[in-house]
């Protein structure tokens, strides 16, 4: 499993991560980010890509 952290003080809910890792990140109907704090190892590459595309650099994979 990988552990994912989003700094919600930084997050601006742009939703770029949703495109890279749709199984982990989601924008709800109120335009707010929802995400899984843990995901299968198979999601690692997608979450790494989500880390890269976050304009606020708010996403971390906790090793």
């Amino acid at each position: 499993m990988i552990k994912i952290q989003v700094d919600m003080a930084l997050c601006q809910h742009y939703g770029q991560c949703v495109f890279e890792a749709p199984n982990v990140f989601h924008l709800n109907d109120d335009d707010k980010l929802e995400y899984l704090a843990e995901a299968d190892d198979s999601e690692r590459d997608n979450v790494e890509a989500a880390v890269d595309v976050c304009p606020m650099q708010a996403i971390r994979i906790v090793e």
Binding site: G15, F19, L27, D29
Partner: peptide, 11 residues
Amino acid sequence: LGLKAALLPYR
């Protein structure tokens, strides 16, 4: 301007 979730299908 705002409407972030509604913007995604247009992308």
